[in-house]
Design a protein around this nucleic acid. Structure first.
Length: 510
RNA sequence: GGCCCGUUCGUCUAUCGGUUAGGACACCAGAUUUUCAUUCUGGUAAGAGGGGUUCGACUCCCCUACGGGCUACCA
């Protein structure tokens, strides 16, 4: 019988969650949904020095925005509450005591300076391995090197201490990883990691293993940066007698910077020219603001689709996947091994695809939103029409306003490339005629606007090509844009004529 | 330095011993659009290097190189 799938996303609230974290959460979520399992959110805040106010809320809001629902955990509760490790402090002592009792862990009283001195000494001796562990532990001040009486005396005197894992020599530790097969390391190369800090808090390693066990986690899906400590975790399961309850591991390839130089990190926010956080984040200490994907105009579905493909692919040529489709198609076996360089252009392409998939009604909401910020009134019908015209030209929702401003505001300046080259006497004559002609009717359609233009140009024997750009410039101010005739239709006769006439008055003839 | 992981077009990737090494993004060209964008068509572009194993290696093994991760009382 296989265990029910229970996966967890376990971020540390040391700042804003970045998109690498979102991808990790996503893969966990996909597996949970696919198998009818449970998605758990656990907050790993065992380092009280690195606590950042607002970070936990940011994590929760980010997951919500991208559509990753939490079944159990911080913010929603559940049978294994609390889900914040700092509130679980009392739970860990029991297990660390168990490890001490079974001689799998020991007390260590060394100061920072003493440890530093040890490293320097080992290095000077030409020792490759400068770790606190098998080769050095007996030369340090701990319950292994000290007599029982000395240890007891130190503990009773309240001397600060940590508890370290006692890694046994001469073993092969095997980590079976779902994405990269089995990874074997010699236990002698591992160090005696601190399990319990002097403030009584567990380190990540202990808390993680204990909580995964207590919460009956079936799969640990996390970033590759954890692979080096996975052997320790495996040993901990063994030392605690939980080898049969050990979860499956899957270490994900890292998200790399676009230049391939290192993994994507929080400090890269905004420096690489693209967002790194799902939501805008203001660092509470420095006050620095980093724009999020949401605020930059990315649709959560597009971000998810893009992220899903960074390190995973379905093996088919389909690239557009809804969350539901991702859930159906996801397979841990198809997760890649190599780090993926981040390419924002592909993210933009996904965004464009998702935007185009929306109806004009849906798109109009974006435009209306921008318009209300500008205090501009507009009917839904017109907004929809404008969005329809702009649909194939936009990448982000805000582009409807940015590229469609001229529908609401007459140009205040004209593209000089066009006015310098094409604003000729000939053009002026045609435009004057054209304005006079369209003026005659109250309303105008794109077709009519076009036929009138054709009529005027043929009467004056001027090629339409020479006229189109000057006409566009007079109406929109710009050199390019959506279909001009349709634009005139939206603007209406009165506004269009007004703009043409204004241009005629202000632009000097070349 | 040590330990671990990785390496197919510029980027994301397909390929699970036999393919003209496929797709997507980006880029370039042509067509359509009497402009731009869109759309369509086409194109440039890849198995890090060296040894094996094999009738046959991108694919399996080894070495080297390169890249990445870890090496804290951080996660």
């Amino acid at each position: 019988m296989t265990k029910p799938v229970r996966v967890r996303f376990a971020p540390s609230p040391t700042g804003a969650l970045h998109i690498g974290g979102i991808r990790t959460a996503l893969y966990n979520y996909l597996l949970a949904r696919q198998t009818g399992g449970t998605m758990i959110l656990r907050i790993e805040d065992t380092d009280q020095n690195r606590f950042v106010p607002g970070a936990e809320e940011f994590i929760i809001e980010s997951l919500k925005w991208v559509g990753i629902a939490i079944d159990e955990g911080q913010s929603v509760g559940g049978p294994y509450a609390p889900y914040r490790q700092s509130e679980r402090k009392h739970l860990y002592k029991k297990y660390v005591d168990q490890l001490i009792a079974s001689a799998k862990a020991y007390y260590a009283f060394d100061s920072e300076g003493e440890i530093e001195a040890m490293r320097i000494r080992l290095k000077a001796e030409g020792n490759d391995n400068q770790q606190y562990g098998i080769h050095s532990r007996l030369s340090m001040r701990n319950s292994l090197s000290l007599s029982e009486a000395e240890t007891t005396q130190l503990l009773e005197s309240g001397a600060p201490y940590v508890i370290r894992a006692k890694i046994e020599s001469g073993h092969q530790v095997v980590v079976n990883d779902l994405t990269r097969g089995s990874v074997t390391v010699q236990s002698d190369t591992l160090d005696d990691k601190v399990l319990m800090k002097s403030d009584g808090m567990p380190t990540y390693h202990l808390a993680n293993v204990v909580d995964d066990y207590l919460m009956k986690i079936s799969h640990v899906i996390r970033g590759e940066e954890w692979l080096p400590s996975a052997p320790l975790h495996v040993l901990l399961y063994q030392y605690l007698g939980w080898q049969n309850e050990m979860p499956e591991f899957a270490h994900l390839p890292l998200l790399l910077k676009p230049d391939g130089n290192g993994k994507l990190s929080k400090r890269d926010a905004d420096k690489m020219g693209f967002p790194i956080f799902p939501l805008t984040w203001k660092d509470p200490h420095t006050g620095e603001v980093a724009t999020g994907y949401r605020e930059a105009g990315y649709l959560p579905q597009a971000l998810i689709n893009f992220l899903a493909f960074l390190g995973w692919n379905p093996g088919t040529e389909q690239e557009i996947f809804s969350m539901t489709q991702l859930i159906d198609s996801f397979a841990i076996q198809r997760i890649g091994k190599a780090g993926a360089k981040f390419d924002i252009q592909k993210a933009q392409w996904f965004n464009q695809q998702y935007l185009r998939g929306k109806s004009n009604e849906e798109l109009a909401i974006y435009l209306m939103d921008s318009l209300s910020k500008e205090n501009i009134n507009c009917s839904n019908a017109v907004a929809e029409k404008i969005c329809g015209l702009l649909k194939d030209r936009v990448t982000f929702p805000q582009d409807f306003w940015l590229q469609g401003k001229f529908f609401f505001k007459a140009p205040t300046s004209y593209d000089e490339q066009v006015t310098n080259k094409k604003w000729t006497q000939e053009a002026v004559t045609v435009l004057t005629q054209y304005a006079n002609q369209i003026k005659k009717s109250d309303t105008i359609t794109a077709d009519v606007a076009k036929s009138i233009l054709e009529k005027v140009t043929s009467e004056l024997n001027v090629g339409t090509g020479k006229i189109l750009q000057p006409l566009r410039v007079s109406i929109t101010g710009g050199a390019s844009g959506p279909d001009l005739m349709a634009t005139i239709e939206v603007l209406g006769v009165e506004e269009a004529t007004k703009r043409i006439e204004h241009a005629l008055k202000t632009i000097p003839i070349k």
